[in-house]
Design a protein around this nucleic acid. Structure first.
Lengths: 168, 168
DNA sequence: ATAAACTTTCATTATATTTTGAAAGTTCGA
DNA sequence: TCGAACTTTCAAAATATAATGAAAGTTTAT
């Protein structure tokens, strides 16, 4: 396989994985493209490479910037904006963990906390079952939350060193 | 808040979280409903509770069974099928991890392995960048894979005991 | 102040995903 | 073997999500 084809495959695979995990396919593809691009790219180049419209390219890049995965770059003497992705995979993983925690896990924990407080008849099976599930999920969610927090704060060596060693 | 409203909120929240993570909203809602139901339910009851069609209820329940999250139950003397969800949150988490690994992570690792083998000019920045990203992501993916495998095999105490302790 | 170069917006269009429900299929007891 | 009770299928419809591109907005140099 040659580089051009391989790059294409990588972009496709990253896009597919993203969409399976609730991330816009195009956003994942733009990210993939920037990941394998040695130089920062313009909106124009992104549009061209992925055959997408200007509007789409613009919004997608903006989203990636909001996710903390991509940054703007300005070249001296040029009006155009260039974009490049952080190439450090560990940073990327942490950044994604951070954003999804904030956007999705935190709100769910808030709701679970409320639902945990609901009072009811301890003899009622409907209440007992509801309460057990909510309480258990709440505990799990909080543990995941703590784990993510630690991961987000930790540096790479700490993580691979202390944690993965355990998982052999 | 009273139980009926709380149950509703839980189903909604679970559905929303599911859809944000690439799991069909209805599937997550049916799962939530079964989770908080002390007794196994019929298709009819699921349709009624969630206001969904027979076809949708049927397919969704089948999917949940394929995911290993729900089981059929037969009551003596009755033709109808009853469905109930495993209530053990740790099992649920493991089951989801197992299925998604098989369906999504494994195929991606296969592609990354291929892409890692692509040869190119070591002086070419395009090749160097491509190669670094692919190699790094491959390593991360394999570590995640190993971690999931260990988690899937492990029992609950082992997990909360040895791992979460580290995360304080 | 103007115009060229560039970026952003958003109503419309296109695509992808999900749901419906009637028909077909299956199972079981009489 | 029949038919009632129940389950499954799947083409069509509905809904939700994403993309387009022309117009509006912004910035900068002159």
């Amino acid at each position: 396989m040659e580089l051009t084809e391989a790059r294409q495959k990588f972009i496709e695979a990253w896009g597919k994985l993203g969409s399976e995990w609730g991330i816009n396919r195009t956003m994942a593809q733009v990210h993939a493209l920037l990941l394998i691009s040695p130089e920062a790219l313009t909106t124009e180049e992104i549009m061209e490479s992925l055959s997408i419209s200007r509007g789409n390219a613009n919004m997608t890049v903006r989203d990636l910037i909001n996710w903390g995965l991509v940054e703007k770059q300005h070249k001296p003497g040029e009006r155009k904006e260039y974009f490049f992705a952080d190439k450090d995979v560990w940073n990327i993983a942490r950044q994604v963990a951070k954003e999804r925690r904030k956007r999705e896990l935190d709100p769910v924990i808030k709701i679970l906390d409320e639902l945990s407080k609901v009072q009811g008849d301890a003899k009622d099976p409907a209440f007992k079952t509801f309460n057990k599930s909510v309480t258990d999920i709440n505990k799990l969610a909080k543990n995941v939350d703590k784990t993510l927090e630690t991961m987000i704060k930790a540096d790479e060596n700490w993580f691979w060193g202390s944690v993965l060693k355990i998982f052999k």
